[in-house]
Amino acid sequence: MKAYVCERYGAPEVLTVQERPQPVPQDREVLIKVHATTVNSGDCRIRALNAPYGFRFMMRLVLGFRKPRQPVLGTELAGEVVAVGKAVQRFAVGDRVLAFTSMAMGCHAEYRCLPEDGKLMPIPAGLSDAEAASLCFGGLTALSFLRRGRLQPGERILINGAAGTVGSALVQLARHQGGEVTAVCSTTNVERMYALGAAQVIDYTREDFTQRGERWDVIADTVGNAPYRRSKSALNDGGRLLLVLASLPDMLPAPWVALTTRHRIIAGPVSDCVADLHILVELAQAGVYRPEIDRCYPFEQMIDAHRYVDGGHKRGSVVIELLPD
């Protein structure tokens, strides 16, 4: 099978397409022919070893010092089951499935083996392969932070970086949970944010949300440029700042802020569990949540997709399509 391999950290050009043995499913595994996968900001950070300030050494410890221990990137996929292990009960050959592999990665390949009891679900009716492949990264991150932030119906939530993969998921899921959503984005994305359910949209090219004199119960920063020192004046009493992307210095004040103010800083790793994947699939089936797709690239243009994501201005997900035989 063909797979894109990252054997050293660096620019998109470090990726090479290689022939690798097709995996064989173990007793409780399924073999999936990948029809679509994504290139997200996490893939690009791993490829480039581009960690927020203070986390570079830790990133090397987790991923590999000189090169990635898992050289095939990609955390989400959609495809078709083409073989099953002898003990598999939940899936059969021919099933359309979506999956999230998290730090195990390995989705930028033509085939992927996964355990049947992992983050693996049937694709809901009406969802394309591209949409199914884009469901997990943004949606699971958004669900995790909204749960930890304890968003309540009727509360005001501002989402900084609302047009990205995580941001657009936050807009939809926060609205579904009863939040009054303010989206912060560029001029070209204003109408899209209203279409996703935002009650108010702030164009960051024209004004700074912290200078409007407004306050919110929850502020979610997906960009990394709205730390507590900048956002505190825009938080209500009891307000929560969700740092989806943050440097170590921006996270360290969290205990002191909790002790000395009526605010909370919430940051750290996402808890992506199977139960949350079930929730996302149900919401997608009900038409409540739909992942936003910026553009699609053929498998052969994986490097171009990485270059585009590196630019930092994608709107939703960037999908890689592998056409079925």
Rank of each mutant, 00 (worst) to 15 (best):
D27I: 00
R8K: 15
S41Q: 11
L31S: 02
E29Q: 14
A36S: 14
T16R: 15
G54I: 05
A36F: 03
P52Q: 12
E7L: 11
V34L: 02
T38R: 01
N40C: 10
R8G: 04
N50E: 11
Q26P: 00
G54Y: 03
T37F: 04
E19W: 03
P52T: 05
D27S: 08
H35F: 05
T37E: 08
R45Y: 08
H35P: 01
S41C: 03
K33T: 01
Q26S: 09
V30C: 07
D27Q: 10
G42L: 15
A51G: 03
Q18R: 15
T16Q: 15
G42Y: 10
P23S: 09
A51F: 10
K33V: 00
L31P: 03
P25R: 02
E13R: 15
P23V: 09
N40W: 04
P21H: 11
D43C: 06
E13S: 14
T16H: 11
Y53C: 03
H35C: 06
R8M: 11
N40F: 04
P25C: 00
G10I: 07
P21A: 11
C44M: 12
P52D: 06
V30D: 04
G10Q: 12
L15M: 15
R47I: 02
R20C: 09
K33G: 02
L49H: 09
R20Y: 07
T37P: 07
Q26M: 06
R45V: 00
L49I: 07
R8Q: 14
L31G: 02
Y9M: 13
P23F: 08
P52M: 06
E19D: 14
Q26T: 01
N40M: 09
I46N: 03
E13K: 13
Q22P: 02
A36I: 04
A11V: 04
L15Y: 08
R47C: 03
S41T: 13
V24C: 09
E29I: 07
A11E: 13
E7D: 14
E13H: 12
A11I: 08
E7M: 10
P12R: 06
R28N: 09
C44D: 11
V34E: 01
E13T: 10
P23K: 10
V39N: 06
F55Y: 15
L15E: 10
T38G: 03
T38W: 01
V24A: 11
A11L: 08
R56F: 07
R28P: 00
V14S: 11
V34Q: 01
I46R: 05
T38E: 02
D27W: 01
V14T: 09
A36P: 06
Y9R: 11
V34N: 01
G42I: 12
I32A: 12
Q18Y: 04
L31F: 04
L15N: 08
A51S: 15
D43S: 07
R28S: 07
N50V: 07
R56A: 12
R45G: 13
E29L: 08
L49F: 00
S41Y: 14
P12E: 05
R20H: 10
D43G: 02
I46S: 03
